[in-house]
Design a protein around this nucleic acid. Structure first.
Lengths: 190, 190
DNA sequence: ACACGACGAGACGGATCCGTTCCGTCGTGT
DNA sequence: ACACGACGGAACGGATCCGTCTCGTCGTGT
């Protein structure tokens, strides 16, 4: 019977190691060292680095974020941006996510794992927000779901994970307002 | 006298190696092998991996992109998106840029190099586009330059470098129209 | 109370890379 | 024409990691 506390220590060490050195440089030796664990304890659970990371990442993704439902498109977008910003501010997340996304361009299995862990979740939430706005008459019926996700998620991800600049006071409000306007324009354009 | 063809072969190999394995796994041994060159030829030019990459990246960034000037905000944004999309479609670029950006979160020297190579350039172009639109009366005078860059660059980078989905026909047109609307809203909000 | 087995530690042979040093060759500048 | 030096190749000791395999210890289930 594998000890759960050891499993947890390893999973936690994977996150720290991913954040510290990235997937490329990550080593099982380093993870075991960081977790205070023998290498055998790791190999007893996962065959290699890839399944270890895939499993650890998938385990986190299960925590599905519920779609916001504030009654207005602006409110939903504002809340969605707020939650996303909070997630992307965690130093560990903002290190690991871009790192794994870059690695996904090279590794189809990582790409698939991130697809279901991040992309599908966000796409679903974004689609739900748009759908409800259409029902309320705030957006045109044909509003493109993919373009909507790009408009909602793109600027904030760019700001927090690419440029890595801080968010000035009131930034999320301005961004939410601009995004809602963009969504309306995107629906009207077709 | 160092031979220039050898220097070029090394620089080219750096790009291929960065795209193939990423900065973390990149090795001077691998670069020399790929370039068909002795390791000494590399060490004769650069002291280690970091200056090699910094120098190679900086060399590319010199090719400054001119700010678009089509006479209308929509035209400028549309052209800017087109040029950016073309750049981000190059497989090598779309592999290297996210990889180095992720590494930049760990390495201040890489961060500084990318700052001047990418960020400052884009920021300048975006600011010029916004400034001209303000002069034409298309945007309010106080339109925030940082938010504008986020709105212009974010969705397309998200789409091409994060999600990595193809651009449907007419996507750039819809995106440009939505972005222009967002920019106008961003200016009016303050 | 006892046995099973997971545990941390670490040694192992093999692999890869580091940065340096030595060759013998070949291109270049004067 | 000649010498200087950069070249590709290869080897070097040292370092790190791989994946496996031993230890002796210690926790757990029955």
């Amino acid at each position: 019977m594998l000890r759960e506390d050891v499993t947890d220590a390893i999973r936690s060490a994977v996150f720290d190691e991913l954040a510290a050195v990235g997937y490329g440089r990550m080593s099982i030796e380093g993870i075991a060292r960081r977790a205070g664990v023998g290498k055998a304890a790791v190999y007893r659970r996962w065959r290699s680095k890839l399944p270890l990371v895939l499993d650890t990442v998938s385990a986190v993704a299960v925590q599905g974020m519920p779609a916001p439902d504030t009654g207005s498109l602006l409110g939903d977008v504002r809340l969605l941006l707020e939650v996303t910003a909070r997630a992307l501010r965690h130093p560990v997340a903002s290190q690991i996510i871009p790192d794994l996304l870059a690695e996904a361009a090279r590794n189809p299995e990582i790409a698939a794992a991130l697809q279901t862990a991040l992309r599908d979740t966000q796409r679903g939430i974004s689609a739900a927000v748009v759908r409800k706005a259409v029902e309320r008459g705030e957006l045109a019926a044909g509003t493109d779901a993919d373009l909507s996700l790009d408009l909602i998620a793109g600027p904030l991800y760019w700001r927090l994970a690419v440029i890595r600049s801080p968010l000035p006071k009131g930034y999320l409000d301005s961004l939410a307002a601009a995004t809602v306007t963009a969504l309306k324009a995107a629906g009207a354009a077709r």
